[in-house]
Design a protein around this nucleic acid. Sequence first.
RNA 1: GCCAAUGUGGCUCAGUGGUAGAGCAAAUCUUUCGUAAAGAUUAGGUCGUGGGUUCGAUUCCCACCAUUGGCUCCA
Length: 574
Amino acid sequence: MSNEEYLKELRHSAAHLLAAAVLKLYPNTKLTIGPAIDTGFYYDLDFTHPLTEDDLPKIEKEMAATLKTWETFSHREVTEKEAKEFYKNNEYKRELIDEIVAKGEKLTFYKAGDFEDLCRGGHSAKPQKDIGAFKLLSIAGAYWRGSEKNKMLTRIYGTAYPKQKELENHLTMLEEAKKRDHRKLGRELDLFHFQPEAPGMPFWHPKGMILRNELLAFSRKLQLEYGYKEVLTPTMMDVSIFKQSGHWDHYQKDMFSTIYEDDKLFGLKPMNCPGMIQVYKSSLRSYRDLPLRLSEYGLITRKEQSGELNGMFRVMQATQDDAHLFVTEDAIDEALEGLIALVSDIYAGFGLKFKAYLSTRPDNYMGKLETWDRAEKTLKAAMEKAGLEILLKEKDGAFYGPKIDYQLEDSLGRTWQCGTLQLDFQMPETFNIEYIDSDGTAKRPVIIHRTIIGSVERFIGILTEHYAGAFPVWLAPVQVVLLPIADRHIEFGQKVIDQLQNAGIRAEMDTRSERLQAKIRDATLQKVPFMGIIGDKEIVESAISVRKRDGEDLGQIKTASFLNLIQENIAKKT
RNA sequence: GCCAAUGUGGCUCAGUGGUAGAGCAAAUCUUUCGUAAAGAUUAGGUCGUGGGUUCGAUUCCCACCAUUGGCUCCA
């Protein structure tokens, strides 16, 4: 058995343990389901009284006591009648029983100690021994069967490991993730803030803007190399555009709109596509113009439900690094190759690992079957050629075309959906866009939609957590801070600052009348990559003593060499 | 939108049915200092917003707003 399976069984058993303890403490609670998940387990319960976090330690204690009576799991097959009799007061379990019966599967009960539960199995052979350490982590609401039409149940999350040490490591990791929270770091590093008058819409501070601008400059530079042309389209347009694109029908409830001059209804764009298509349509296009790669760093606005905003990860206004490629059908392959290469280039700039998922034709697809087959084959071939592992998401494509989704992995191993690359055969029809082919006839191009960074806001949130705020030199809002030891060193410091700034380095000087230790501490907490200490010795040598934010002492360095060192770091994106 | 929790000076947090404190940050002064926090003084809050109960509400109740952990949603 793999370690993964072992953990899964152990946690599944821990979920039963949780249920058993809850039943002892709150006998009228109705059990529903309780699976193992990647990081632990949960159990969804229907309590007669609301539960709070304060109740968790009590439940943990009961779990520990119960575990002592759990030597092993035994199971038995039961009839539908028996099962329903057992759960005569539990409509959730009866619903599950009906489903199992309908599927023609056997009904089994698993028992450990004196706790028995409807279960398909998959438990630790020796729960008492295997569940070495467990902890209940949080309490949350969850809909029965995941549908908001159903009753809200109480979900208790927990985690379990064979060894106490492993549990502790996991908890340390959670602590570490908390320290890296971009909302916390955003405030501490003075990058941005939120306030109630603009929910889900960040106020960017000067230092945050440097991150944005560097990020976009990097993206622009690469896109230029790949033949993109940048455009910018209105944030607000008459809703007739969105009626034509279909957004008004399908997405209206998530769109902001506003009345203009009493009789015109304007909508804030929730996506850039309609606008960019207007640019395409603004003149007659020849096959010689294709592929036309239009990029836009467009501001999109979407209403989000109140409970789902989450710092920079989920905002109501976002800037997307959007692009639309207008290509002839037979040039799709080539366009995709370029795109996949570009995606890899951009992610590589941040040292982020990624996985690419190919989403294939859904049941409600539009267009011709053979076009889909070809498009999927094309995407697959392009992924293969780029050396990407092909992970499939069957039937998960958009109705207008198949897509590749990119998931980034950050330094804590968490994954984030960022880039997406979608083939679209539908929008060209809807907007009736054409090009004149070499034979003089009008033909329909294909559109490839893509974002790589995704939303700039979200990406900066991810980068902040990935680097724990210690941005690489090229991104760091302040790259160098000079620390004069006494006031008489400021003059020399200013000369160094001038040199650095003239070379485009973001350098500052801490002229406060604080002790050196305090200045080092503050610069370290601000995660400034380089500190340059200036005292009498440095002035004599016409050099600065360089300390890195991780504490490494680089000793005295002449200003010119220091400049080179920084520029090297910037160029290598370290 | 749903379940649960939270909202006190810029930040982190304490506290109370009789109109509020601490540390850090800030300002001023002293100090001019060698690799992660010098010292003193001062200033700063109608306790998220609106209603209600009460002689009196930051504290109790209701509504709303925002945030957090989840669920759902993300065409």
